[in-house]
Nucleic acid binder design. Structure first.
Lengths: 267, 267
DNA sequence: CGAGAAATACTCACTATGAGAGGAACTGGC
DNA sequence: GCCAGTTCCTCTCATAGTGAGTATTTCTCG
């Protein structure tokens, strides 16, 4: 009995035709800006529009493996590289989100360091890093955030419901920086505290008190691990050489680094 | 062109046969114990085993609507009832998690108050509230929790990978109690601070300092709203009447109520 | 060399937390 | 009706964590 026969014999009416895809929100920081990896669609629907990299889940592939494969195909990064973080974000399955048929998409979220090659995809699709600012995203679904003034037509840039997926991914990323050391996935193996602070400032889109940030990250156990080395030169605009650190072994930050007061967005 | 023809004409090989189901982790508190709603399977595979309530997503149904329907079918609770919380948990799609065919399951998590009727399902399936303690669950997937000594065979009680889904749901529930007011979804419309404390103690499986808890919940803006009324009688074992509160309008707790030190589980 | 900038280290006021103590109100049992 | 025990609620105190500001020193750039 083939799989198809089994399927048909079991109870065909109970298995409405559904396709399952994996989409990946790949975030990185380039030029002090939070960027997302997008690919331009070469076919209908939404032909010519930007979309999140993704595709159908293969028959013998785990969901996470599919996401890893998509990530590797588009970035050239072997996702086994330890410096990449990949986690499941959420699933999206509104009945008509894809006009062709019922498609349920399992979205993943990835943090990668600034890559040398600018998204050298292995296939023919055009892909690019796009700054998330200026995409005019809707609110994250479950996130009780302050309403964002949405520029008309701005989200039309993204295909399907990918603007929503991206918004949810951004909210997850912002939140994850609070209580996990994942900010270190955006920088190199060795980094300065100022580099790390700029990651936080970029993702949170807020400025932080340098002194307090310094004190804080050094006081959280397991967050930073000293290399004993400093940078070769001071900053490009002056200032002393800074010490280099590695990510420590903490998987949760305690106490957490909380975002600057979101008092307004709590209700 | 029917949907099937479209599907076939498009690129059949690109759509491996996959079924999408919705499973729901429904939690409630009964007799000072955290309970989960389970149904007994009436057919192979895992015939006779307990499983999470769930089923196939219908063709024109949103994922959340499917979860709501499953919840309503099994509990009799019209999930529109404001006192129920329902959120997406995660998706599970390992290639052979269901021996019949590839099944991707989108899991949801629900918090319901102690229901009058003991899970009066509308269909013939046997269903029951089962205390989660003693199920011998595996660790939550992404949760860096302390390794739980797993009793051999204990998790064989649950069908498919539902023990894992339940474990992930529990970890999510424990975490959500920290920074959201969702503990109030486990109690009635009006509740005492002690009732709320017992929710936290039950879900976190830890005892809390009554005085500090009292001060804390009252100091978090928007968490508690006074009714100006007290209970008719004191507690069954003595003590004064306690004041009754309603849930306030906060959607996030700030500052959060953190679980008693998990220092060990941070690395 | 001087101006400006950044890394790091302080201080200080304020808030939040954990632990404990104690008064007052109530229960059930005798 | 009284007592012992329980619970609600409040308060204190020591300690930890945070936001804001300042100071010192070491750099780069022009």
């Amino acid at each position: 009995m083939t799989e198809e026969e089994f399927l048909a014999a079991y109870d065909p009416s109970a298995f409405p035709p559904v396709a399952v895809t994996v989409d990946v929100v790949v975030l990185t920081i380039r030029d002090e800006q939070l960027n997302v990896l997008l690919v331009r669609r070469g076919e209908a629907p939404y032909e010519g529009r930007w979309a999140l990299p993704g595709g159908f889940v293969r028959p013998d592939e785990d969901l996470a493996a599919g996401a890893q494969r998509e990530l590797a195909e588009e970035t050239g990064v072997g996702a086994r590289l330890r410096r990449v973080h990949l986690e499941q974000l959420a699933s999206y399955g509104a009945p008509r989100r894809d006009p062709r048929m019922r498609v349920v998409s399992v979205a993943y979220l990835a943090f990668v360091p600034d890559l040398p090659e600018p998204a050298a995809g292995t296939d023919a699709r055009e892909s690019a890093w796009v700054p998330v600012a200026g995409l005019g995203l809707p609110d994250a679904a479950g996130a009780p955030g302050r309403p964002v003034r949405q520029r008309p037509g701005a989200t039309r840039g993204l295909a399907f419901d990918h603007a929503q997926i991206l918004a949810d991914g951004l909210e997850r990323a912002r939140s994850k920086l609070e209580y996990t050391p994942l900010a270190t996935r955006f920088v190199g193996e060795e980094f300065t505290i100022a580099e790390l602070r700029r990651v936080y400032e970029t993702v949170w889109d807020d400025s932080l008190h340098a002194g307090n940030f310094h004190r804080k990250v050094l006081s959280v156990p397991g967050f930073m691990e000293s290399t004993g080395v400093t940078t070769d030169r001071g900053g490009s605009r002056g200032g002393p050489r800074s010490r280099l650190y590695r990510a420590g072994d903490a998987r949760l930050l305690h106490p957490a680094l909380l975002r600057p007061s979101r008092e307004d967005s709590i209700r």
